[in-house]
């Protein structure tokens, strides 16, 4: 499986359509800090962001901050400028103050499909989460529908001042999503947790919990582990044990200043089998990230 993923590796792929593996679906999370008009007005930044998206089948984006509704449509147009066929799902503006954020899923329609009716914000009647997560159910299109891997994605961005409380609330969200549909046991919580695995104590309430990113930094300054993909390993046995942090500096040859213009976070990703796997499997966790260039 890792050999097939290697088709993504050549850096020269920038100018050509990205060739994705037939035997893996690549799911990423990317906090694009203050993604709004200012960022979209910088062609060099948009180009990097578009190249990032094209490497993956689905990108869960956090921190869209704009009064305008056309930021993401214009961005997806830029992504598709090379002939790609991405589409998006965007959530409502969320936040307790007048400063709001939106969650977005951008996905490759040739590789995955979404049940649009399933998309929504997880209810938070007790107001435990500053920006309650956006959920949507996807299914791979690489395999016949009856065999295709389907899964919930739960897109989140925690409040950095209430991380332990929000991780506890997200654990309840995860458990709630696991029982949201009797025919869906795969839940992948992904986003900017503002916390790394040592702070994931609440997640231990999820039976068999695992996460992709471990022992690697995820912010652009390479000092913190904030972003991750969390899932229950017995249920989501489709996880291939392959993950990575797409380092903006080294991937695109950017000095730190320019990489920070793109975002203060690097994208993180994990690879999953495109077929639904019925029973639990034992796949070892990768202790080292894989590099996508």
């Amino acid at each position: 499986m890792i050999c097939c993923l290697a088709v993504l590796l050549p850096a020269a792929a920038f100018a050509q359509p990205v060739v994705k593996p037939w035997d893996a679906v690549l799911i990423a999370s990317f906090n694009i800090q203050v993604f709004g008009e200012s960022k979209l007005a910088k062609p060099q930044v948009v180009e990097v962001l578009a190249r990032v998206v094209r490497k993956f089948d689905i990108v869960a984006i956090q921190e869209v901050r704009a009064k305008s509704d056309d930021i993401i449509p214009r961005f997806v147009q830029a992504v598709n400028a090379d002939g790609s066929r991405y589409h998006y799902l965007i959530g409502p503006r969320e936040g307790r103050t007048s400063s709001k954020e939106q969650y977005v899923f951008v996905y490759d329609t040739t590789r995955v499909e979404v049940d649009a009716a399933s998309a929504g914000v997880f209810p938070d009647p007790s107001d435990r989460l500053h920006r309650p997560p956006m959920c949507a159910r996807f299914r791979t299109r690489i395999m016949p529908a009856q065999a295709a891997f389907s899964f919930w994605l739960v897109n989140t961005h925690t409040d950095p001042d209430e991380v332990p409380q929000e991780l506890a609330a997200l654990t309840d969200v995860f458990l709630g999503m696991q029982s949201a549909r009797p025919d869906e046991d795969d839940v992948i919580l992904l986003g900017d947790m503002n916390a790394g695995p040592p702070e994931f104590k609440s997640y231990q309430r999820i039976p068999g919990v695992g996460w992709a990113v471990s022992g690697a930094t995820t912010n652009t300054r390479r000092t913190k582990t904030y972003d991750n993909l969390v899932f229950a390993r017995p249920a989501t046995s489709e996880y291939l044990g392959v993950w990575g942090v797409l380092d903006l500096q080294s991937t695109f040859g950017l000095p730190l200043d320019n990489a920070l213009e793109v975002s203060d976070h690097n994208p993180v990703w994990a690879a999953f089998h495109p077929c639904e796997i019925g029973g639990p499997q034992t796949i070892p966790l990768a202790s080292q990230p894989t590099t996508i260039r």
Binding site: E37, S99, P160
Partner: peptide, 19 residues
């Protein structure tokens, strides 16, 4: 700056303060 009349200033200020 969170009280600035310009939305762009406010959003960048909030993002800076978060971190």
């Amino acid at each position: 700056a969170c009280g600035d009349a310009d939305e762009g200033v406010r959003e960048q200020a909030v993002a800076a303060l978060e971190e």
